[in-house]
């Protein structure tokens, strides 16, 4: 799965959890840029991503995330371990 495909799949999850797509889906996207992406929805977004890709993130890695690009790196790394 390439980066664009991972981004698209995460985008679908964001639309579903946040209930809208009023944000620019790109590698620079941060939680601050998407309405409703707060500490509560963040929990469910991460667990939904883990479930959709069949991976489990390490807490240390989650805490380093700064933007969507980092999240794609994380998913991509986990998928390559499979």
């Amino acid at each position: 799965m390439n980066r664009a495909e991972i981004l698209e799949k995460i985008g679908t999850i964001l639309n579903s959890v946040l209930g809208h797509s009023n944000f620019e889906l790109n590698e620079e996207l941060t939680a601050k840029d998407a309405d409703g992406w707060d500490s509560l929805t963040h929990m469910i977004i991460i667990t939904e991503i883990e479930s959709a890709f069949g991976v489990k993130f390490k807490l240390k890695d989650l805490n380093k995330l700064q933007n969507m690009g980092n999240l794609i790196d994380l998913v991509s790394g986990k998928l390559s371990e499979k």
């Binding site: 939680a31 707060d38 963040h42 929990m43 991460i46 667990t47 993130f57 989650l62």
Partner: peptide, 16 residues
């Protein structure tokens, strides 16, 4: 942001 750190902790620990 401490809220996101706490969310990561809770999500990681409490489960889906």
């Amino acid at each position: 942001n401490s809220g996101l750190l706490k969310s990561n902790l809770i999500g990681y620990t409490f489960g889906r």
